[in-house]
């Protein structure tokens, strides 16, 4: 564990990214579009009354929170990690005296620090624009913050583990895309999970995807009972542990198998 090296990587990348703020803000705006579309669609659908326990104000709040959580948890490095393994530029990163994962983590922190204030500001503006009524209990805020931190870790680990598969398959782009689509479908972006048919809802509760975005949002809006929150954290912890072990194994085996050609 070379913590000083890790911090140096974060600092270096942060300065690099700060100088390209405009670029990242364009990206962040793009990531926002999908939830914004569903916000608009659902608030139009709920104009007539309550749907699945959500009224119009709830839908708007739900999606505004989802935009922030989605931005906070969305990992950006899996694409570049897979690409670097594919084209061999990862060689340089392997030579550094820090664990391989530090490179990805450094970038993740840097991107989040650059993007989150911007996204939060935009979402606040939206909130005023829609004139939402906001009531949040203090204890659900604490729980949601914990859920958010774990969600960031979980979503990062899964994407990172998949990108490491490129050590064996050369290309893991399509698999990453499948993963992103699953997040989109099962993490409560298309619709809050409460509106899903019961069978699908049960499945979604067991898969890791729900815990990457919609779980913290439901927690902060007070849509979950204490028992549901507890079982949610348990499932989440299980997946994180599993993926952490998997990432460790894949990194070890993958770097040993890796060989680059050319100069």
């Amino acid at each position: 564990m070379n913590l000083r090296g890790g911090l140096a990587l974060i600092r270096g990348q942060l300065f690099g990214y700060l100088s390209e703020k405009g670029f990242f803000w364009t990206l962040a705006l793009g990531w926002m579009t999908a939830p914004v579309i569903y916000l608009l669609v659902w608030q139009a659908a709920a104009a007539g009354g309550v749907i699945g326990g959500y009224d119009r104000n709830d839908f708007i709040l739900y999606y505004l929170c989802l935009i922030v959580v989605n931005q906070a948890t969305y990992p950006t490095t899996h694409w570049t990690t897979a690409e670097h393994i594919h084209n061999g530029t990862i060689s340089a990163e392997l030579l550094r005296p820090v664990p391989l994962i530090y490179n990805a983590l450094g970038t993740e922190f840097a991107v989040k620090i650059v993007c989150l204030p911007f996204v939060t500001a935009v979402v606040t503006l939206f909130g005023f624009g829609f004139q939402v009524k906001l009531t949040i209990a203090a204890d659900s805020l604490g729980l949601a913050a914990a859920a958010l931190l774990l969600a960031m870790l979980l979503r990062f680990l899964l994407a990172y583990a998949i990108s490491l598969l490129a050590f064996w398959t050369q290309q893991s782009n399509a698999l990453l895309q499948v993963n992103d689509t699953l997040v989109f479908l099962l993490a409560g972006q298309v619709a809050p999970l409460a509106l899903f048919p019961p069978g699908l809802q049960k499945l979604a509760m067991q898969l890791p995807y729900r815990y990457m975005a919609s779980f913290p949002v439901e927690a902060v809006l007070g849509k979950l009972s204490m028992a549901e929150i507890r079982s949610g954290f348990a499932v989440m912890a299980g997946w994180i542990l599993l993926l952490a072990i998997l990432t460790y194994v894949l990194t070890n085996k993958g770097t040993r198998k890796y060989s680059a050609t050319g100069g």
Binding site: T169, A174, L175, L185, L195, P197
Partner: peptide
């Protein structure tokens, strides 16, 4: 890239399911 091809098929299927599923959930309400 053959494995990538299989994944592409899966990806198309999923986005189709997602699009239709999204509309189905919406019109349930």
């Amino acid at each position: 890239y053959r494995l990538n091809a299989v994944m592409r098929l899966l990806s198309t299927g999923l986005s189709l399911a997602g699009g239709i599923g999204g509309i189905a959930v919406l019109f349930q309400a």
